[in-house]
Design a protein around this nucleic acid. Structure first.
Lengths: 130, 130
DNA sequence: CAGTATCCCGGGCGATACTG
DNA sequence: CAGTATCGCCCGGGATACTG
């Protein structure tokens, strides 16, 4: 971490993954993380229930788990207000916001290539079916 | 897909995910796919065993599963040579190669921010420990 | 070589119920 | 409101052994 070796060198130094982006993938693209980060970035600071309402299919337990993980990784900031009833607000951190261009890049790739994937799937399925 | 509504509009149109990049994530960042795509892109066309040797911890069963999935999604091309012994070669497709800038972007984010994540984790762990 | 065929297991995730 | 607490299941993934 202290040396400036190239990424290819690091990749070969980690034969287990053979892929320098694997660590990032684990952090950013584990389950439910992209919806959470996306909403917090797009819709701003929100409370627990608001997140639940936007990401409709997530259960409170799993939402808590993912929020804790994202907080630990420094991607989001949790603020607790000791009121009655208690209030908690989540907002994206600067580090989390630094992913925005990457997400935009991803969204752009999706617009131009998602239908190609769909097409490839249809081809594959019809070909192997006959 | 035919309209040009903004991404935020599309996001709200899919409340289940509330995240327009979720489909891409499922395709590109499911388990083992980034090492496979990375190697095929960086080291070129390869045979089954070569992939196995580079991605040391993957089992043949799972490697087959992921290769089939990537082939179906049009990300890689499988070529079978009916020789004795049989030979199969995998190479990245044009669609798969279109991810290269994205992966580079990801690698760049990693170089500048991975240590911040590490730092945040240390802070979180020490703070919640005391 | 390039895969299948089984068996099996852990844990991530979901569903439900409950608390300060 | 903002979560915990429990239970249980499914299935993706690993280990191992075998085939054309």
């Amino acid at each position: 971490m202290a040396d400036n070796t190239t990424w290819t060198a690091l990749a070969s130094a980690d034969p287990e993954h053979a892929c320098p982006i694997s660590p990032v993938v684990d952090i950013v693209f584990s389950r439910w993380t992209t919806p959470i980060l996306w909403t917090l970035n797009a819709d701003g600071r929100q409370r627990f229930v608001e997140l639940q309402r936007r990401i409709t299919t997530i259960t409170p337990k799993v939402l808590t788990q993912r929020l804790r993980q994202l907080e630990r990784d420094g991607m989001i900031v949790r603020t607790y207000y000791p009121e009655v009833p208690p209030r908690v607000e989540y907002e994206i951190s600067e580090l989390g916001r630094s992913l925005a261009p990457l997400f935009a890049h991803l969204a752009e790739w999706a617009t131009t290539n998602l239908d190609k994937v769909e097409h490839a799937r249809n081809d594959y399925d019809t070909d192997s079916a006959q």
